[in-house]
């Protein structure tokens, strides 16, 4: 396993996550092996690699959604702005309001558009309609869905197209003012036009949020990410500036993957 310390961000104060020696097991199977990586703030970091390499597993660690999987065990630490998020004292619910998630298949609730975006807020006890309306509008605007949705806020979200639903899910996550947005292959279920919309959106969003995106599409990673991390069979093989990883990869495995020899 390669020593990745050389690839850590030059300025450690700008990291939002610091992962150190992370092992993740699903029962007896080890999905991640001694992963050490820093995620810089306000940048787009892409995780790439073939199926089953562990990239989604790592993503799910950041908001502790892995806790929901039976038999999942963690060794090592993940620090968010200095605090270990796997510490016993950690309020998982609060963590999830700081670290939002967008899933591969859009999963809006069978409720109105308004209620979808307001859901997270209501779960945190915010009931004032003035505040809710303001936040819903801001979030939909940031997710580039406001113009299309503003006259139909009470229509059922399931009636939106796939791309619109995914933007709704982004708006829903943004509504909680998270610091980080995790995206697990957010465009793999969408058509090319919708995909392009989301990619533009990600470009905008990174000014305000840190984005970690898992993607199967190398071209997508090359297009939108600042940093790229390549995983293979549970190992973090290489991580660095996207342009370097794609044009002058240091590891032969990385080179093979990028040139399409496997995956």
């Amino acid at each position: 396993m390669q020593d990745t310390t050389a690839f850590l961000a030059a300025d450690p104060a700008g990291n939002i996550f610091e992962v150190a020696d992370l092992d993740v097991y699903y029962d007896k199977f080890q999905a991640l092996k001694k992963v050490t990586i820093d995620i810089p703030a306000n940048e787009v970091t892409a995780f790439i690699g073939p199926s089953g390499c562990g990239k989604s597993t790592l993503l799910r660690c950041f908001n502790r959604m892995n806790d929901l999987i039976e038999g999942c065990r963690i060794d090592g630490t993940i620090r968010m702005e200095g605090t270990d998020i796997y510490d016993r004292q950690t309020d998982v619910v609060k963590l999830r309001t700081e670290v939002g998630m967008v899933f591969q298949a859009p999963n809006p609730f069978p409720m109105s558009i308004f209620d979808n975006v307001a859901y997270g807020l209501r779960c945190q006890g915010i009931r004032d309609m003035k505040i809710l309306r303001r936040v819903v509008e801001e979030s939909l605007k940031k997710a580039a869905l406001w113009e299309e949705a503003k006259d139909h806020l009470h229509r059922n979200a399931l009636k939106l197209s796939g791309g619109q639903q995914q933007r709704l899910c982004i708006a829903r996550a943004i509504a909680l003012e998270p610091k980080v947005i995790l995206m697990d292959e957010p465009t793999s279920a969408l058509d090319p036009i919708a995909t392009a919309h989301i990619e533009d959106l990600i470009e905008d969003l990174k000014k305000q949020y840190t984005i970690i995106i898992v993607t199967h599409s190398m071209s997508q990673a090359a297009r939108i990410s600042d940093k790229t991390a390549f995983f293979l069979l549970g190992d973090l093989v290489e991580v660095g500036e996207t342009s370097e990883v794609f044009h002058v990869p240091r590891d032969t495995r990385t080179e093979d993957y990028i040139s399409g020899k496997f995956g």
Binding site: M65, T97, M101, F109, C123, R172, L176
Partner: peptide, 20 residues
């Protein structure tokens, strides 16, 4: 997916059960 969405938005299990 709905359960995942609800929990990732910071709901408790009980909120997920009653609201979604």
């Amino acid at each position: 997916g709905l359960r995942m969405a609800s929990l990732s938005l910071g709901s408790s299990r009980t909120q997920m059960i009653f609201r979604v």
